[in-house]
Amino acid sequence: MSEATAPSKRPGLAVWLPLGLFAAFLALVFVGLYWPADREVSSAFIGKPLPVFDLPPATDERPGLATPVFKQGKPRLLNVFASWCVPCAVESSQLAALAKQGVEIDGVAIRDRKEDVARFLGQYGNPFARIGKDDLSQVQLAIGSSGVPETFVVDSKGIIRYQHIGDIRPEDVPMIMRKLAEAQ
């Protein structure tokens, strides 16, 4: 095939059409991928103090949870979970790892039963110092949590510094440690 002779024919506009369509596609998915910034509920509660609450214990093994705990001069994690929530079970090993590094974690069990909480903690470990029972999701809504699991970094004065929505992945652990250090 000798193709050395370049044909004199000028390329029509049609050859640019695929590139144009492709650019339109890229623009569309780019918008789709980055526009829905509202997919993640950004917290309006960051920088605000924890609301005052006093929750009864969710399990016999640990005390309940009340606001004064968060003003003891050490940053803490507040983990909103439930025994019926699958991602909560998934993140348990990350919580255990955090607890092992000396982080104090308090839990709020949402709409749960004592026996279920006990079974859940027995199966997946118990990294919590205290666990409050929030049967009506009152505390959950008051701190701006939209689901389970969620984890809040609360500084030594009881101010919310960071909200993590969804389960804590292993890759999130260093970031949470950093947020805790910043909250010192």
């Binding site: 193709e3 024919k9 390329p11 050859v15 590139l19």
Partner: peptide, 10 residues
């Protein structure tokens, strides 16, 4: 493709 398509002989 857009740059070369015109130079591919018929």
């Amino acid at each position: 493709f857009a740059l070369r398509a015109g130079t591919v002989t018929e």
